[in-house]
């Protein structure tokens, strides 16, 4: 099989929306998943959670398969080195086939986000939280981020918090520490010139009930646009082989 997508000059961010249960027209191709993924999909308490987990991982395999030209089920994942210690629990990486491609996966309440780039990338999507969750979690953020959130009108408070949180989590995933690094250390607020050096922060539109972000570790200036692409749900079903390279998969080019 040959690759149908070229590694992006900047970054590709794939967005998948799970349809309402009544609008699901096919069966997820669970044969794409390995034993570990199947086990984790089954371990979710809510059926919706397990379905989303499976959809997210089938999506990741099929998207990466289009870039590397290896069948989705043949892909083998491992973990990169952790930046905090010597152990191998950093960013997820492709072990088979060997590839320079970087990627990141996130899913939350019916939405899946996948980032692909030739440099380290982290993505995060979260359902906008309750006011109470936002209030409590704001305490964990950088002092200047907290000050900025305090200025936001109450009606926009939870989505502003969600935007900051997804930037932060995407950054920590790009960095490779994940949530092992304290959330108060880095500034991902509204002043982009103060963001961590070497990282480009992009807010990603993800529908009315979610916030999302992609953070990309270019060496130097951004080397291309961040392209938001639509991943149709029916590309994950058994017996389908969606052409992800279709031009109309492009939703937007996001300014970095």
């Amino acid at each position: 099989m040959t690759a149908t997508l070229a590694p992006p000059a900047g970054a590709d961010v794939w967005l998948l929306r799970q349809p309402k249960p009544d609008d699901i027209t096919g069966v997820l191709d669970m044969e794409e998943l390995d034993e570990n993924e199947l086990q984790r999909a089954r371990a979710c308490r809510r059926q919706a959670g397990g379905y989303l987990y499976a959809a997210a991982h089938i999506a990741l395999r099929r998207v990466l398969s289009s870039y590397v030209g290896e069948p989705a089920r043949e892909l083998v994942f491992g973990r990169g080195p952790c930046p905090c210690c010597d152990q191998q629990h950093g960013r997820p990486v492709l072990v088979n086939p060997q590839s320079d491609l970087h990627f990141s996966l996130s899913h939350s309440s019916g939405v899946v986000l996948i980032g692909v780039a030739r440099v380290p990338i982290g993505v995060d999507v979260e359902k906008v939280p309750s006011a109470e969750t936002a209030r409590v979690c704001t305490q964990a953020l950088h002092p200047d981020e907290r000050a900025e959130l305090a200025e936001v009108p109450e009606c926009a408070g939870t989505s502003a918090f969600g935007r900051l949180w997804t930037r932060k989590e995407a950054f920590l995933k790009g960095l490779g520490t994940g949530l092992g690094r304290d959330l108060s250390l880095d500034y991902l607020g509204w002043e982009s010139e103060r963001h961590p050096e070497g990282w480009t922060v992009v807010d990603v539109p993800a529908g009315p009930r979610h916030t999302a972000a992609a953070v990309i570790g270019y060496e130097g200036a951004p080397s291309g646009p961040v392209t938001l692409r639509w991943l149709p749900m029916d590309s994950l079903y058994s017996g389908t082989r969606a052409d992800l390279a279709r031009k109309d998969s492009v939703l937007a080019e996001l300014a970095a």
């Binding site: 984790r40 371990a43 979710c44 308490r45 809510r46 959670g49 939350s108 979260e126 939280p129 109470e132 969750t133 409590v136 979690c137 305490q139 964990a140 949180w165 989590e169 949530l179 959330l183």
Partner: peptide
């Protein structure tokens, strides 16, 4: 797997 993601985990930590 019971639904405690990053945000709810953070809230839980504070509680």
């Amino acid at each position: 797997s019971v639904g405690v993601g990053s945000m709810l985990g953070c809230e839980l930590q504070y509680r």
